[in-house]
Design a protein around this nucleic acid. Structure first.
Lengths: 341, 341
DNA sequence: ATAAAACTTTTACGCGCGTAAATTTTCGGT
DNA sequence: ACCGAAAATTTACGCGCGTAAAAGTTTTAT
């Protein structure tokens, strides 16, 4: 590979012996030029290592190949995992994904949307903050940019919604817990950052009632995204006060469960389904670390692949012109039986 | 705010009653125009909501305001945390950071570097994969783009290196473990993905020898970045074979420790510093989840703030023209005493 | 071989903005 | 009120590429 610095397409076109407009066509779609021409360009490409200037390209294209991926927090392994999954799918589909995190705060989410506008993405995959999302800003954004909402829905904004079926999640695991021991109480944050929390509480209550049982919800104090620590503290308080009416606790999500397990450990409360255990704890999400808690956490897991595949494909379809009415796709979770419940 | 769509700076300049070049100056540096002029522009800005076209701007600027942040894996909470920290600092300093993950693989890291070239960043903060990094590619990249290497150094590439002092980490915690119980053996992966692992093993050996003790290194099998699971399996094997020559295990990093704790739990091996515990386990890194293991993990923590602050500032200085010879800054960690050791 | 179809080349313009040079306006100090 | 300096304006060009139109060339089908 020669080390000559090629500074623009003009020069590269000259070196490859092809006209610049044709080279331009090639970069926009290699299949659009004659095989012989393509071969010559690719040959020159190997020797001279040239890449079109991104900024000049996107200035003139009606549609960039950019896709924005936005999650509430990249520090949360659940979102990190799904973002990774989505990123890969975008790249494989020939797009250029860019990752953004709202860092759990409204104003950051708003900033991200402003930034996104400036890169003129052809589409956006957005997992909203939820309760903390600025509805008006998001709605306006969805009007301007093809946006697919995932993880938690915000009204009927955007192209469509794809997420997990929180009702099924909670109903399913509640059912399991009822069948294998005492019916669970529900452990959650009083003011949850995650909007799915509301759905899950509701689903728990309905499931319990449909089984002819009385639901019990324990709502702990705490603000923000430090779920584990909030739950650890709340767990201590609940255990001390004897706030759990049954020996089975269904947590609104795995991170709360992780914190609760720590609280149990610190108080010497044995968790599990063995005879000598005094409490069963279950989570929801299929958090990457749920396998490594002590005891390993029984949970109901998102189908990460299915969610991200459905979401990504729906966006790609919309970008490529398919117009479909707004719809909501909710994907079932899989129960993961481990030792904690 | 009027809803008229302003399509370029020309129009906006007309509406604000200021000439386009002056408006351009304003956007590049609001302080560079007369206060009265600035006020008029900002007034118009509120009413008409215009933002310069990013692509047109960066096409002509010698130096974009972009900064690339690259980590080996965003799914690893340690890197997610430090990436978050760096991202914030870039934004606060007026830059536009973009996050990239190498997903633990060489070819992805190479791809990221190619992508980075195309966005013409004014600087890059890069945590290399380490052993798996393509040296030649990285070296060439560092020649072309101002790059600051952090977390693990690769020769003397880039502007400088900023990371934790792995020698101090390991020496310090080894010392602590020796003083409070049996001297530790060292638990690591045979072929670690993380290059700091080598330094830490070496530091352990030297520390032990300086204390007049015999070092013992247990190297477990496994490839890739699924440290916890690799460690859990390796831990089972080691415990079964009685491979630990002492009751104290110092893990090369917290993720290995988390897996080992799970293995211990699954075998009913009690971990901790209480009299009835049979093994002590310590980690290294100050992983966000180390607080929530059972028992909570004793570890030596990165000074996340100091590392990211030093790294970011060094890059900013270089971008702003300060030329300094390559240097390596290694920041000490803080021992976090918890129940596991 | 010939005509039609498909592809390239040439030419030319525009995108939205940075930026330099020359000129005019504005401002603070006296 | 006057003058010099600082700032704003006018004018003009260029960045690297997309893209359209017209003309030329190659390929494919008949």
């Amino acid at each position: 590979m020669a080390n000559d610095k090629i500074k623009n397409m003009e020069e590269f076109a000259a070196l490859s012996g092809i006209s610049r407009p044709t080279v331009s066509k090639y970069f926009n779609d290699p299949e659009s030029v004659r095989p012989k021409t393509r071969a010559r360009i690719e040959e020159a490409l190997q020797e001279h290592d040239y890449r079109p200037n991104m900024y000049a390209v996107n200035q003139n294209r009606k549609l960039t190949k950019n896709i924005g991926i936005v999650v509430p927090s990249l520090v949360d392994p659940y979102f990190a995992e799904i973002a990774r999954n989505l990123e890969r799918r975008c790249i494989d589909a020939g797009y250029r994904p860019t990752l953004f995190s709202a860092h759990g705060e409204t104003h950051h989410e708003v900033d991200v949307l402003m930034t996104l506008r400036s890169i003129k993405p052809s589409g956006v995959l957005l997992a909203p903050l939820g309760r903390a999302t600025d509805r008006a800003v998001l709605e306006k954004f969805c009007d301007d940019v093809p946006t697919l909402i995932f993880d938690s829905s915000v009204e009927q904004f955007g192209l469509a919604f794809v997420g997990s079926d929180n009702n099924q999640f909670t109903t399913h695991i509640t059912d399991y817990l009822c069948r294998t021991g005492e019916p669970p109480c529900f452990y959650e944050m009083k003011t949850p950052a995650n909007p799915n929390a509301h759905r899950r509480r509701q689903a728990y209550i309905e499931a319990m009632e449909s089984f002819g049982l009385t639901p019990h919800v324990i709502s702990i104090d705490g603000e923000g995204w430090e779920f584990e620590e909030i739950s650890r503290l709340g767990g201590h308080k609940a255990l001390e006060e004897g706030a759990f009416p049954t020996n089975t606790v269904l947590c609104s999500n795995d991170r709360l469960a992780i914190g609760l397990l720590t609280a149990c450990y610190e108080r010497g409360v044995k968790v599990g389904r063995q005879p000598d255990a005094v409490i069963r704890v279950a989570g929801q999400d299929g958090h990457p670390y749920s396998r490594f808690t002590c005891p390993p956490l029984t949970t109901i897991s998102h189908d990460y692949d299915a969610v991200s595949k459905t979401a990504a494909n729906a966006l790609f379809d919309a970008i490529e012109g398919q117009v479909e009415p707004w719809k909501s796709t909710r994907i079932e979770g899989k129960l993961i039986l481990r030792d904690s419940a």
